[in-house]
Each structure stands twice: as structure tokens, then as C-alpha cells.
């Protein structure tokens, strides 16, 4: 530390004549929450991790895929899949770090309305989800052109617009799952473990259960959120499938989110 010099100059002048500052606009809370998502060590390495795995996966498709697999869908997936897995962790940490790192003591005293802060975090998570799919599709297109050039085949564009839209929707929903787990659990390790159970342990178990239990096999589309999300990735959703998604999503996403938001409003920030 530097040697402390004489009495510091504090420009604090109190009393009459001071203007009451304007209310913090919501756009500024949004901007701050976006920066906070990426300016930490964990945020930085998550971004690096996503970029590196996307690069490796694209390279692997070019290097190892047979010529008839050099298609846009595979390049899009090579970049999109790491994002789909890792971006929800960013949404989780953006919420849980306020409690686990205790930075909420500052955040919630500078913006003393938890709803505003959480709404900003949710919107940022959704925007990140939508933009990242756009980035994945753009880089995937580049990979497709280069890959087809190297393999000496014509590029195959096999992702339709409707599929791109449902993919975007699925990714945004994934980030909201992360946000929900963060709000509900409010502890970084706990919520990340919760996310892996939610996304990677439960799905095979529910599939196994469907093999063994006839009642569950019939009810699965309505009650199994992960199962109901499947058609989103194929890009063809009919009315029944949207209904499956709405019902299972209400149980697995909206209900726990409501509980989490209620708890956050009442909890103490320590």
C-alpha cells in the first residue's frame, strides 16, 4: 500500500443545496448486470471454456466427420452444444454469487429493490441465450463453408428458419432454468450441482422409468420437462408438443421460480 499522505480530501458537502439524484434507470441496472456476468474470474473462464470447446468441436467435425456429415446442422451443434451446457451456469452464478460471494450486500444497497435486480438478471440471461444461438449459427455457417471447401463438397444448409427459432427458444429456456435454480438455491456449488442433476441425471432416470412403468410412459410428455423439450431441437413442434412443453415447464420451471422469487424477497442479505 502507498504511504498515507496528509488528510485526504473528501468532497463531501452536505446540507441544503444538494439535489436529490434521479432514480436509477432500469437500463442501467441491465447494463451493470450484463457486465457483472462476465467480469469475474469464473465468468471469464466460462466464456473461454465455451469458445475453446466450440473451436475444438468444429475442428473435430472438419477432421473426422465423413463427407456426407459435413453439414450445417453438425457445425451448428458443435458450437451450440457447449453453449447449451455451459451458459446456464453463467445464469446460475449471476444470481448465486450475490449470496455465495456476498456481493449482494453492495448490490442490494445500491439498488434497494431486489425485484429490479433480479428482473435485470433474468432479462440479461435471456438476451445472452438468444444472442449466443445467433453467434453459434454464424460461426457454424463459417465452419460449414470452410469444412465443405476442405472436403471438396457443396455446403449443405440443413437448418430451417423454424428450427433456428425453436433452438433459440430452447436455449433461452435453458438459461431460465439456470436462473431459476440460482434464485431457488442461492448458493453457487449447490445450484451448479442442482443443475447437473436437473439436466443430466434426471433425464436418463425418467427414460428408464418409462421403460418399466406404463403409467409414467403415458404421462411422461406432460410431466417430464426435459422430454418435452426434445422436439424443440428438431425444429418441428405441433400443438400437442407445445402443450406438453407448457404443462411440464409450469411444473419444473415456473412453479419453482415463483417459490424462489418469494423466498428472495423475504430473505435477509447477510
Amino acid at each position: 500500500m502507498t504511504t498515507l499522505t496528509a488528510t485526504p480530501e473528501v468532497a463531501a458537502v452536505a446540507g441544503p443545496g444538494r439535489e436529490t439524484p434521479a432514480r436509477i434507470p432500469f437500463t442501467r441496472v441491465l447494463q451493470v448486470e450484463l457486465i457483472k456476468m462476465v467480469d469475474t474470474r469464473s465468468g471469464f473462464w466460462l466464456m473461454i471454456g465455451i469458445a475453446a470447446s466450440a473451436l475444438i468441436a468444429t475442428g473435430a467435425v472438419i477432421a473426422f466427420a465423413p463427407d456426407d456429415q459435413i453439414v450445417y446442422d453438425n457445425f451448428g451443434a458443435a458450437i451450440g452444444v457447449p453453449m447449451v451446457f455451459l451458459l446456464p451456469v453463467m445464469a446460475i452464478l449471476s444470481v448465486t454469487s450475490e449470496w455465495s460471494q456476498r456481493s449482494g450486500l453492495t448490490t442490494f444497497t445500491l439498488v434497494p429493490h431486489r425485484n429490479r435486480v433480479l428482473a435485470a438478471k433474468a432479462i440479461v440471461a435471456m438476451v445472452v441465450g438468444a444472442v449466443s444461438i445467433g453467434v453459434a449459427l454464424a460461426i457454424g455457417a463459417l465452419g460449414n463453408v470452410i469444412g465443405a471447401g476442405i472436403a471438396g463438397v457443396d455446403p449443405v444448409w440443413d437448418i430451417s428458419l423454424s428450427q433456428a427459432l425453436t433452438l433459440t427458444f430452447a436455449n433461452v429456456m435453458n438459461l431460465m432454468i439456470g436462473f431459476m435454480l440460482g434464485v431457488l438455491i442461492r448458493n453457487s456449488p449447490g445450484a451448479v450441482v442442482g443443475y447437473f442433476v436437473y439436466g443430466f441425471v434426471l433425464p436418463p432416470l425418467t427414460m428408464l422409468l418409462a421403460e418399466l412403468n406404463g403409467w409414467w410412459k403415458d404421462a411422461q410428455p406432460w410431466l417430464d420437462f426435459n422430454f418435452a423439450q426434445g422436439p424443440l431441437y428438431d425444429g418441428q413442434m405441433n400443438g400437442t408438443e407445445w402443450a406438453h412443453l407448457a404443462v411440464s415447464g409450469s411444473i419444473w420451471l415456473l412453479l419453482p421460480l415463483a417459490v424462489g422469487l418469494y423466498l428472495v424477497r423475504r430473505s435477509e442479505v447477510k
Binding site: 474470474r41 456476498r102 456481493s103 450486500l105 453492495t106
Partner: peptide, 12 residues
């Protein structure tokens, strides 16, 4: 306001 100096994000 300064309530707890250790309540700051360690990764920033």
C-alpha cells in the same frame, strides 16, 4: 454504506 468488507466478490 460499508457493512462488511469481506462481502465483496473475490473474483473481481
Amino acid at each position: 454504506v460499508l457493512l462488511d468488507a469481506s462481502a465483496q466478490h473475490a473474483g473481481r
